[in-house]
């Protein structure tokens, strides 16, 4: 049975370093299912709600760089990662989040100690606060990464060699 983990993300490439770090530390035989979740408030418009589609919302978020970076990780840890799923969470309270965890059968939540949430768009919200109060076990990882200020969130290169300090 695969271990299913949830990671909050703001669709920045840096947020994937948590996953990279976790994958490096995990045992060789581990089989993982990963859900990358972004908090996204839904539109109030009734027609938007009527034609609600997660696929379309994800497509409209323009996260091709993020998806590419996920694919890079997936190709690297091909044997460990059974499935990586990018999802949005649209609830607004703790019980909705608990529901989401139960519904997706999440075994563990992984958080980064360093990473601060940067809203991807106007409707983004941070789900870390729900994650911290959740009944599911939460693991905080120290990724030892420098978060550069004003960095381009679509910069795939930030996924590479962050943990190998550049020698001066």
């Amino acid at each position: 049975m695969a271990h299913k983990i949830l990671l909050p993300t703001d669709f920045s490439i840096e947020s994937l370093n948590v996953l990279k770090h976790y994958l490096q530390k995990s045992s060789k035989e581990a089989v993982l299912d990963v859900v990358l979740v972004h908090g996204q408030t839904l539109s109030d418009s009734i027609s938007d709600l009527l034609f609600f589609s997660k696929y379309r919302i994800l497509k409209e978020l323009n996260i091709e760089h993020f998806e590419d970076a996920v694919k890079i990780l997936q190709n690297k840890y091909d044997s460990k990662l059974r499935n990586v799923h990018i999802d949005i969470f649209t609830g607004h309270n703790q019980s909705a989040f608990e529901n989401y965890l139960t519904g997706n059968r999440i075994d563990e939540i992984i958080l980064s100690e360093q990473l601060t949430f940067k809203p991807h768009n106007k409707k983004s919200f941070d789900i870390t606060k729900y994650a911290l109060r959740a009944e599911t076990p939460v693991t905080k990882l120290n990724c030892e990464q420098e978060i550069p200020k004003n960095a381009d969130t679509a910069d795939i290169s930030s996924l590479f060699n962050n943990n190998v300090a550049l020698s001066r």
Binding site: D68, A69, K71, N75, S157, F160, N161, V164, L166, S167
Partner: peptide, 22 residues
């Protein structure tokens, strides 16, 4: 002549080569 990092990774469609110097 400081260290130059060359990294490589690939998604399903593209190979990414990152060359970084200080």
């Amino acid at each position: 002549n400081q260290m130059v990092h060359v990294s490589i990774g690939s998604s399903n469609e593209k190979v990414f080569i990152i060359i970084r110097d200080t």
